[in-house]
């Protein structure tokens, strides 16, 4: 099966003020099939948003390549990239800053058509509004008239306007209240099924990820530590970090386990060997010396651990 999006051994290092090297993404390979929903999960600073930006072509990797529909993003001219953008869209967390407050909602929705020189009509734009559950009456109003949930719907409407093949959504529901969050999750799932849309969700919330993604990849300090089908990874995590993440989610009716100690080490000086060994409850001497590779362990699951948890 040809993949819609493929990332091969991506690495991106930033030089920070004091001359330090921050390895935001370190040797990450990933593939996304047509119509598939994949989630990138991890805590702040793990590199999930940087990876999302590399996959969108917003930023160039130092090493490795991103291949979208057979084309290497790095080899594309600005013009060719612009054409591709119509098929590759992004939704951000903060829908409040995504819109020009002085443009009407109709103008905001027409913008992608204008940029890509495609025809549109008031009718097609109101149909788009209805598609995401917004009243056509909003067409002549301003973004300020919308609530947070409605603004996120509008954001999604604009992202699907040009019928893209892939949407990258960076924390699309984390700024929303639970009841509104549920509405947006349902909408994203509907759109994904109806439009055969591939989605890459960047999220820290495992319960949300479980609801919207078929597959998930867990990142820690710039690398993927575990990957596999969402329900199976969350039910039986193989990597001790994934286990700790699942256990740390506060849930009704489940006692809180002993939390992981300490903080995530600075990405400016990641630990040698396995990146997680400094906080790992089952670390062995080997973990400090040798970095485990992300290897297949059957059932479409991959894990980067010398001593994966037994199922």
């Amino acid at each position: 099966m040809t993949m819609l999006l493929q990332a091969n051994e991506l690495a991106r290092t930033y030089t920070v003020g004091s001359g330090g090297k921050l390895r935001a993404v370190d040797d990450v390979s990933l593939a996304l099939a047509r119509g598939e929903a994949l989630a990138l999960v991890g805590e702040s600073g793990c590199g999930k948003s940087t990876l999302g930006r590399l996959l969108m072509g917003f930023d160039r990797p130092d090493r490795g390549q991103v291949i979208f529909e057979g084309q290497d993003l790095a080899t594309l001219s600005t013009k060719a990239m612009r054409v591709l953008r119509g098929r590759l869209q992004m939704v951000f967390q903060d829908s409040g800053s995504a819109f020009n407050p002085r443009w009407t909602i109709g103008q905001a929705l027409a913008e992608p058509f204008r940029i890509h020189k495609r025809p549109w009509s008031r009718q097609s734009l109101t149909a788009l509004l209805e598609r995401v559950g917004l009243s056509p009456a909003f067409y002549d109003r301003y973004p300020a008239a919308l609530s947070g949930g409605q603004r996120q719907r509008l954001n999604i409407a604009r992202a699907i306007a040009l019928a893209p093949q892939l949407i990258v959504a960076d924390e699309p529901v984390s700024a929303l209240d639970v009841s509104v969050q549920a509405q947006i999750i349902n909408l994203l799932r509907d759109l994904q099924a109806d439009l055969d849309l591939a989605c890459l969700f960047i999220s820290h919330d495992l319960a949300v990820v479980r609801q919207i993604a078929d597959r998930m990849a867990v990142m820690y300090l710039g690398g993927i530590v575990e990957e596999g089908e969402t329900l199976s990874v969350l039910a039986v995590p193989f990597h001790p970090y994934t286990r700790a993440l699942v256990d740390a989610v506060p849930q009704p009716g489940k006692p809180l386990g002993a939390p992981l100690q300490g903080d995530v080490p600075s990405p400016l000086s990641p630990p040698p060997g396995c990146r997680f060994h400094t906080r790992c409850p089952i670390a062995q001497p080997r973990c400090a010396a040798e970095r485990p590779a992300l290897i297949h362990v059957g059932d479409g699951r991959k894990v980067a651990c010398h001593y994966p948890l037994a199922s």
């Binding site: 009841s179 999750i185 479980r210």
Partner: peptide, 18 residues
């Protein structure tokens, strides 16, 4: 409010109640 929270275990609902 309790129903709208996506579950972390058990069957995955097709749609979340809103």
């Amino acid at each position: 409010l309790l129903r709208a929270i996506p579950p972390l275990s058990g069957p995955r609902p097709d749609r979340l109640p809103v």
